[in-house]
Amino acid sequence: MQIIESTQNDITIFTLEGRIDTEGAVNMDLTLQDAVDAGKHKMVLDMAGVRYISSAGLRTLADVLTKNRDAGGDLKLVSLNSKVMRVFSIIGFDNFFSIYDSVQDAVDDF
């Protein structure tokens, strides 16, 4: 699980690469929670490189989404592949997250 962080104005963009299984979720959770603690509440997650996600990763996403929205920010997701999208729809996450086709679309929507 690799995470690359970049910024565009006050928006933090995380590019994820790899499997967000139980092990991968630990890494993602550390990075995103650090960002939340640092007050970066406008986040875009580019998930084009994510091939797998299980509940551990989804828990982190739900938690970070809640914290960001409470602080007036958001967690916007970009480029979910069909398998990840299926996982989202099984638990109804697709209704909670704003999902975009490109990072720029997500950034522009803030």
Binding site: S54, S55, R59, A62, L65, T66, V87, I90, I91, F93
Partner: peptide, 17 residues
């Protein structure tokens, strides 16, 4: 599936999968 998202973070989700 209809609970607010904060309520979904604890347990349950894995069993649902």
């Amino acid at each position: 599936r209809n609970a607010p998202i904060e309520a979904r973070m604890k347990g349950g989700m894995g069993l649902h999968f």
